[in-house]
Nucleic acid binder design. Sequence first.
RNA 1: GUGGAUGUAGCUCAGCUGGUAGAGCGCGGGAUUGUGGAUCCCGAUGUCGAGGGUUCAAGCCCCUUCAUCCACCCCA
Length: 438
Amino acid sequence: MQVQTLKGFRDYLPADMAPRQRMIRSIEAVFERHGFAPLQTPALEYAETLTGKYGDEGDKLLYRFTDHGERQVALRYDLTVPLARVVAQHRGALQIPFRRYQVAPVWRADKPQRGRYREFVQCDADICGADSAVADAEVLVAGLAVLRELGVAAAQLHLNHREVLFGVLRLHGVDAAGAQLACIRAIDKLDKMPPAAVQAEIEAQAGLDAGGAAAVVQAFTAGTTVADWSARAAVAGDAAFVAALDRIQVVLDLCNAAGHGGAIVFDAAIARGLDYYTGIIYETRLTDAKVAGMGAVMSGGRYDNLIGLFAGSAVPAVGISVGLDRLFAALQELELVGGNEAAVPVYATVMAPELAAPTLRLVGELRRAGLRVEMELGGGKLGKQFERASKRGARAVLVIGSDEVAAGTVVVKDLRAGSQATVAQADAASYLRDLGIT
RNA sequence: GUGGAUGUAGCUCAGCUGGUAGAGCGCGGGAUUGUGGAUCCCGAUGUCGAGGGUUCAAGCCCCUUCAUCCACCCCA
């Protein structure tokens, strides 16, 4: 038997899980504060529910197998497609527009790398049944509020629109669908490849001549503003392009009004691989140099046709997804994880076996008072017990010897200050609270 | 799926041109038995990822395999 986790899968030991859990809780709190309700769906879905939604590359990464009942099943690849299934399946029971959040693991049979695992947790917030720019802005605002709540100041959300990509290409005479997709794929790499290499890829993959490819690259790297594109699109009479740009501008204005303007920037070169996106799309990168290379930590977009695949009739939707694991890794790197806050701030020593009962009685009272208290299990030398308390990160140590039992008191030592006091057992809880222990 | 690197005590690593393993940290014990983190003393660590081969002899060479890391692809 090999004692190991599967490739790309991890155990989360308490040292990591404690701050991770705090992070999850605060993300959930932010989503709830923004009016999203919790949803939970199964890890396993019928394979056909998931296949064909993520593009060819995505399909390859699905964990699929046949269950004992000969059903073709697959582990969920993201939280969005299962949400679409839920909305279609339970339409009558849900209030539309439906806003839900979900924090849950997803699985991709990818090749593991730094910041990339086969099992990882996504934190999604989506709005189904609203096609307005306000809905777009609401999910962006919620996502940006998460980053703000976690203390991530150096982050930038790059906002784009599917139709902007196509519109720019149409302006350059790239009309064939295949050439357009090839161009978009290449453009998406502008953040990691030099423009010349992207141009070469466009020539090779999309069949453009050198001049045309150069013009396309130039168009996406020039930093053209929404207004400028809008003027050019209007001149060209490209209504879809104009509409997309209008939408982007409105969303930018709304997010700005919500106080998140500084964290958003229009970026025509953002493309998203997942097939189901139809409107705005976005990716968020951390801008601190220490973690800039780790890839997107929060992305998503509008997918107006996905739910229709299940429901028969279209239900517009938009969502955002926070990559918990990457964000957590980044927070650790940036030293924003808030240290090793002790799981148990109070440690009760046991002087002698017969003193375990009176000690546990006091411990019980403290616990009922809401304090987190760990009981010594092994006994032995007091010095060793103090050492264990210290290693566990305890803030205070309780000592109850026979003298204290007789007097109804307890010795409370503040490990950080190094000082101690003898207090009445009845006052122990309030004394500990006065030390700042909760 | 393609290409590259690595795999030695719990952790980070050392091990010279092949002669059956070391350091630091951590861990355990102790320094006149009701007090931790500092210091000092003592101690245990290990199928050298796994399997096979070459050799009198392999951690070091060869093959296979597994795992990890990096790049591509794609993405959180």
